[in-house]
Design a protein around this nucleic acid. Structure first.
Lengths: 219, 219
DNA sequence: ATACAGTGTTGACACCGTACACATGAGGTG
DNA sequence: CACCTCATGTGTACGGTGTCAACACTGTAT
């Protein structure tokens, strides 16, 4: 995990330059193509050109390898979110801006799921008690993880006065659940087969629902 | 689950009485304990006391077996939902009742996920283009699948006038996404580790959010 | 120069899904 | 009754997987 110098391996050298990194990258390629189950240890080592057991010098077991790939995938999600956030033009109205930021975070999540299904599933279908969500291993350019980007948008809404402070705690889980559910149902689950257009439309409405629903029952 | 004659196999008989059913039930037991990945074909046949290859007389491959287990699991979800629906006392206000029914469906979904995590994941993490959601193989006592129970509650809301008709199409996907997301995040995903109490609380708020959010942005 | 610790290799094991050929026996037909 | 047939279960085998234990190589510090 430390910043190994990444000295290139001289070809034909017995020792690989930075095997750990190489394994993670090959694993990421497999995950991108086929989700977490596709990152099979033997295939990863094969692609890197090394014996299967060599991986055990860098990872306790296969699960540790996919966990590393998972962190990388979360970083990719954060980058997509940041891109979406960057496209929001300030309108002068802090409340509207905060809502737009929340929508951007959600839209980034959904866009990533649609664009990189394999990586998406790898990022968020791995058991993990929120530790990775707070670890800088999963952060994007802004130094924040997807979870932290979401939390930031919600904080902003409170500060702008468009979300009641007493509704703030735990709001991450509500918003996250909504977008995550759609993504998962559409990817591996019973909603595969829905065409991209309707999926896009449902996604938009879902974000509206979160926006309206976070503030609780209507007066 | 169906009413197959289920003639008991005479012990020592070469032919098993109703192997297909026996395999599904053993598979369900495994799924209950460890989710879809735990239903491993060889172990299933071992428990039934039969050779691994015998399963291939009844299922094209392992995936077909877990698909059958999946249908059974969805039936179990429908039963939990129906139980939750039965507890709703009519209040005289059709609109309130319809909302209560929607909440009951969602609460049943979440309760099943918390009570039977393995079965839940098996029910809804299997690729499938909504065909199973409409098949009577997945229905409960009322003859309706979880998906159909959800759709029914939403229809009721429209009829009672608490959901605008133009918001009805696709509303299943919105509500389903929300509860499904929470369930999945809490089970296999990054939200495992959240204790049961907070999970319960988040679940309640999530149902509120759906209720309020389905009707779109506030005036 | 030598010892050592880190890294990669070899060989093996248990387990999995699955294909093929074969054995069994229940039920219909003469 | 004898016979045939076909659905069903068995045996054996193959390629794939994750992982372990013992061994081989090599860059580095003594």
């Amino acid at each position: 995990m430390t910043t190994r110098p990444n000295r290139a391996a001289r070809p034909g050298s017995y020792h690989h330059g930075d095997l750990r990194r190489a394994l993670i990258e090959a694993g990421t390629a497999l995950a991108r193509a086929g989700g977490p189950d596709a990152v099979v240890l033997r295939e990863v080592t094969r692609q890197v050109g090394v014996t299967a057991n060599a991986a055990y010098r860098h990872f306790a077991d296969r699960d540790a390898l996919v966990a590393a790939v998972c962190s990388d995938a979360q970083t990719a999600v954060a980058l997509t979110m940041e891109a979406e956030l960057a496209e929001v033009e300030p309108s002068g109205d802090d409340g509207a801006d905060a809502c737009a930021h929340l929508r951007a975070v959600g839209a980034g999540y959904l866009r990533f799921a649609a664009t990189e299904p394999g990586l998406f599933l790898t990022a968020f279908s791995v058991p993990d008690d929120l530790r990775r969500a707070a670890s800088e291993d999963s952060a994007g350019d802004s130094g924040r993880t997807p979870f932290q980007l979401l939390a930031g948008a919600l904080d902003e809404m409170v500060m702008a006065g468009v979300l009641a402070p007493e509704r703030r705690p735990g709001a991450e889980f509500l918003a996250w659940s909504a977008v995550h559910g759609l993504a998962v149902l559409a990817l591996g689950g019973p909603l595969s087969g829905l065409d991209r257009a309707t999926l896009e439309r449902v996604g938009q409405r879902l974000l509206e629902m979160v926006d309206a629903g976070l503030q609780g029952p209507r007066p």
